[in-house]
Design a protein around this nucleic acid. Sequence first.
DNA 1: CAGTGGAGGCTTTTT
DNA 2: GCCTCCACTG
Length: 755
Amino acid sequence: MIPLDSLNIKQREAVETTKGPVLVNAGPGSGKTRVITYRIANLVTNCSINPYNIVALTFTNKASREMSSRISNLTTDLRNSLTISTFHHFCSRILRYNATSINLDSNFSIIDDSDRLSIIKNVMTELKIDPKITPPRVILSAISNAKSLLLNTDGFKANASDNFKSMVYECYQLYEKQLHLSQVVDLDDLLLKVFFMLKSNNSILKTYQNRFEHLMIDEFQDTNIAQYEIAKLLSNQHRNICVVGDPDQSIYSWRNADIRNILDFKKYYSDAKIISLSENYRSSQTILTAAQSIISSNKNRIHKDLWTQNSKGHPVCLTETFNEREEATTILNEVQRLVSEEKMKLSDIAIMYRVNALSRVLEEVCIQNGIPYILVGSIKFYQRQEIKDLLAYLKLIANPKDDTSLIRIINTPSRKIGKKTISDLSSIANVLNLTIFDTLKQIVEEKIPPELQKRLNRGSLEKIKGFYKLLKQLLDIPENTAISEIITRIIEKTQYEEYLKHHFDHFEERLENITEFKNIAWDFSKNNEENSLILFLERISLVNDTDNIDETSSEYLTLITLHQAKGLEYPIVFIIGMEEGMIPHIKSMDSDAEMEEERRLCYVGFTRAKQKLYLSRTFRRGYRGGYERNIPSRFLNDLPKELTFVASEISEPTEYEDDWVNQEYQSPPSKYSSPKNTKTRFNQSSKSIRYDINKDVNPKENKISIGDHITHATFGKGLVTHVRKLGNDYEITIAFTDNKGIKKFLLSMAPITKD
DNA sequence: CAGTGGAGGCTTTTT
DNA sequence: GCCTCCACTG
């Protein structure tokens, strides 16, 4: 038996209501994952349900791994037959298993975003749609949106009421035609095709309905219509469906997550038991109250009162700095202080931001200060050019019909097959209604009509024949060859390394990436008995880079976007860029719905913090080349003043500051309830003075500010990283180039000149 | 065909 | 400010 007495009453109710539909409205840190894992353990151990009959669906691989490992901590030996998977993985399996029933090759590959983009660009060219007037991404997202709403081309046509929609419809049709010809699917298809398969094939539907007696969905607020409808279909026989989510943490509506699912759930399952988890185990009272004060301004929301038994904790600290460099320096000083004085580990700390671009300065200052950091998901491994090239070769070996992959590598490494030849080849393929690979085959076997062949001149003909020969050699690699070995052969046959060395400055890094890729392939073969290339490719298509964060390491500071931070927690959280235009983002300002999502995003950020929450804003931020004056984020106005304090000596408005300090925003009065020493200490480490490039106080001071490049008589070139007032003088910190280190000087004494 | 340079663009990105 | 796309030239 699994004891359930460690759960609170509500959690226990959610775990023990095993029959019928259940909706769990779970606030942040209220033990959401705990409920699902205990529920599964309870079903298996206490209710004797066969794990084979249970499925739990998540959104990320990370979440499903976490769930698996937490369940195996509770009970033994049931992970194997349990289905814990992401929606897409789950559907991919169903689709592959039953592919032939819908006229799809079970070797189908899954295309990524950039493949989709290049297909849609071709489609648009064919339809003579100007990509400057209608960006391909717009069409693509319209199609993706349609698929998420379960509109296939026929369904879309019925709704194509205006000019834009009929244009999208034309593109959608051709796009689908190309996908079908290539025997590939996009990520949305995994859901759409499974839905229509289940809907139209009763025997397949019955098989799965019989099997899945119990179905659970994590992060239900993030489901789109397609996912929800699939879940409904699957659970309609046993009706044991349990969904867990938090509408206040819905931050992916721009990816078609649909909050209507929660409302519909209550309507569709009128007998659903609705359980709210409102005790928070994660954050201090102060953090929770601050977060509530942000979210409670949303009008379109179901009211929910969170509470915690945790102590009041530290006040929320707002730091105000002049610009983004000073912001980074101030925050990283505090990070170092937390590590050295408060015995925090770097892995306890995360710095969060709305847009990726904000990580740049943080990175620079981390490097200057020697702080190791992990930048979550910036340049993605599988999106690197060299990896994409090799993947394209692998995909082509698995499925030679895959035109997109073929076109990607037909001239990589260079085989002197240019744009003209490729477009001639595509047009021939188009006329014959064949894939490019089959067209090449026909050409080599001299089976194509001479008037078509004439479109290619003799030179191009020889080159593409050579390419076909190469492809044949790759296709002849025996099927049971280890994937890493296949990669090695591809590299040999195409002389890919020589290509890299010849074409790129930083080829060493690219070679390292390839080695890493081979290692991944090797690991995969080791852990999967069937050495299937298709499964390997599927895994990669459905894996994202966030999955690779190593949470066990204590060595690294985390830099992460607010979106990516959902589902994570850290003892210490910094959120930077609390400015109008940043959070809330400027693009969300003309829509109430989007503004509410920004608020939820901010709420998600706040509720990641367990012990201490720091917010930061700047007066000016160098962003996109400009240097903008910033108004504090409207969300700061919602914070209870008694819970916050401002760690800044530069926030008091002066005569030349007035124009960029928002009139509405007032610095909190100094009677904060914060422990005095906390404030003082933090201020010591951030005693940066306000300096203004326009102000003429001292001619020398005017010359030097953070970010300036200077030359020192002894140490040479360097970058000013910090300026702070020291008596009547200024202490400046300079990071020198050529590994000469970081040194501090008195401005009046230092033999420096500005470059 | 390949390599360069200027113009324009720009949130977030679970799978 | 940086990256991507394309148009032009060798």
